[in-house]
Design a protein around this nucleic acid. Structure first.
Length: 538
DNA sequence: ATAGGGTTATAC
DNA sequence: GTATAACCCTAT
């Protein structure tokens, strides 16, 4: 009766849960072990597909590996299975998004964890994560610019004031994207002209026109004059050419990320972990017991039935088999009170406050028709579009936390190993949130209402705004499926780069080529490269 | 991920 | 109209 099993192992988790993160991991496992919110609903259609996900682990004190099993099961088989609560998945994602995980693994996680379409905090974290990836890959591009605009849009929707550092970052990235076009072909002013039209006359002027002025600073306006002057004034142009816009952009993006990290604060799991573990000490007795027990298991067999493992963790942490994650949440303050001497600081009180409000949020959701929510999530996930436009992945350096990660070469090797380990047996994959959709905005315009509806708002009141509805990044990808990209002719530079790259990397290694020259092949896919080569050699 | 066949847009 | 380039779909 088992219709489908997809197993995905995530081999690089050692980097995630080395010692500093160890304390965070225990509550995480705990969540997994207690995430068995629902068993099946016998009244529902037995052929509905469900997600089953369990965290599994084999770990020692030094390192840890975790894998996920992802099963599609007919509902009737789920009597004794556990289904992860979509809120728990949200917490986990929220936590993981701020961790130094490679892009590829992050994508996998986003794909396999059930995801609530209206968890808006996650959306912002995904956007921030894109920025971090861009910084790490050193690929500051117009996509970065677009992401910043999306964050601005998000902040606006949620009434969040925009940091100066965000305006600075937007400014620096805009300048870099423009100047990069000039540096690419210093003699071809047309290239530069196009960039100016696209970015400064397009994006930025559009924002002004729509009174979306959150990102438009005075400095940006001044720079626009200068950038445009460079079009006809050679001196200004040369001056612009000497600037290290790339470093400026990276620097200001980092400052922005630091600021915004403070604003959004730690993830719920981190708060929970701190409160539970009291300043990150993990080797208190019950947990020590747990560690030893698991090591023993690892020694015996690394292929232990997963559920046993979970149950053991739950037991050792002092909770019996209640299935509601909410229980855990509500016990949190109580757990904290057990150690008043170590954690009764104002800082921790703040954490507890935050925890309480998160608890309330959760309760609000749980009171709703949770089984329906789960069903919905399962169905959405199962029916997601197949489209896949992979972002180029090179490396994931964590810039702002000073955590060492392997060099590019090592990372590429690791990625190759990932590829052998990551099996996608189903052929059904959800589009990734990490992958940018270059054509999409956060909103979908409703054609019917373009003429009739005015959505008034105090700051942007003048333009008639079509009725808009928030579309989750997941849904966006689905829309894009039917639309053909606009044809973009290959530039001579691209052609020459491709010739050189094929000489260097060999014909057929399109992914490698795209990764290596992603700056030149902006907006191209591996298939594009392959097709272009076919055209060039015909 | 890649190859190869198919479709659509554009230049002539 | 046709030829070609760019893009898309799908099997492996």
């Amino acid at each position: 009766m088992l219709t489908h099993v997809q197993t995905i192992t995530l081999p690089n988790f050692e980097t995630l849960f080395t010692r500093p993160f160890f304390s965070l991991f225990l509550p995480l496992l705990h969540f997994f072990s207690r995430s068995s919110l629902q068993t099946s609903n016998p009244h529902t259609n037995a052929f509905d597909l469900h997600l089953f996900l369990s965290g599994t682990g084999v770990f020692s004190k030094e390192r840890l590996k975790i894998g996920f099993e992802f099963h599609f099961l007919p509902l009737s088989r789920l009597q004794h299975r556990k289904i992860i609560d979509i809120n728990v998945a949200g917490w986990i994602l929220e936590f993981l998004l701020s961790q130094p995980i490679e892009d590829r693994i992050m994508e996998t996680l986003l794909n396999i964890l059930p995801l609530s379409n209206d968890d808006s905090r996650l959306i912002k974290r995904v956007l921030l994560r894109r920025i971090l990836s861009d910084i790490s890959n050193g690929s500051v591009s117009e996509k970065t610019l677009e992401t910043l605009e999306m964050i601005e849009e998000y902040d606006y929707e949620h009434g969040i004031a925009i940091f100066d550092s965000m305006r600075e970052a937007y400014h620096a990235v805009a300048v870099h994207c423009t100047v990069m076009c000039l540096k690419e072909k210093p003699d071809d002013i047309r290239n530069y002209f196009d960039a100016v039209m696209r970015i400064w006359r397009g994006r930025i002027s559009d924002m002004e026109r729509w009174e979306r002025v959150g990102l438009v600073s005075e400095r940006l306006k001044d720079t626009r004059d200068e950038i445009e002057e460079a079009l006809w004034n050679v001196n200004v142009r040369n001056d612009v050419l000497t600037r290290d816009t790339w470093n400026d952009a990276l620097k200001s993006l980092r400052v922005f990320l630091t600021d915004v990290a403070e604003e959004i604060g730690p993830s719920f799991l981190e708060i929970a972990a701190k409160t539970m573990c009291g300043k990150g000490k993990v080797h208190s007795s019950p947990k020590k017991l747990l560690v030893d027990q698991v090591e023993e298991r690892e020694a015996c067999s690394s292929d232990v039935p997963r559920e046993d493992f979970n149950v053991n963790i739950g037991d050792h942490l002092g909770h019996e088999g209640s299935d509601m994650a909410i229980d855990f949440c509500m016990e949190m303050p109580h757990t904290a009170n057990c150690k008043p001497s170590t954690i009764a600081t104002p800082e921790v009180r703040k954490v507890q406050e935050a925890l309480k409000s998160s608890t309330l949020d959760l309760q609000a959701v749980v009171e709703g028709p949770l089984p329906d929510t789960l069903l919905l999530a399962a169905n959405i996930s199962a029916s997601m579009a197949i489209e896949e436009t992979k972002n180029s992945l090179v490396n994931q350096n964590v810039v702002d936390k000073g955590i060492c990660v392997p060099s590019v070469e090592e990372s590429v090797k690791a990625v190759n190993e990932d590829e052998t380990n990551t099996r996608n047996q189903s052929g059904v994959s959800r589009p990734s949130l990490m992958v940018r959709n270059s054509t999409a905005r956060t909103y979908e315009w409703d054609e019917d209402s373009i003429e009739s509806s005015y959505e008034g708002s105090p700051n942007r009141p003048h333009l008639p705004t079509p009725k808009k509805r928030v579309v989750s990044p997941l849904a966006k990808q689905e829309i894009r499926k039917n639309t053909r990209r606009k044809i973009k002719k290959w530039s001579p530079l691209e052609e020459q780069t491709l010739r050189d790259a094929v000489k260097e990397c060999g014909r057929g290694n399109w992914k490698l080529i795209l990764d290596r020259y992603h700056e030149t092949f902006e907006e191209r896919t591996v298939v594009d490269l392959k097709d272009k080569w076919r055209n060039m050699t015909r």
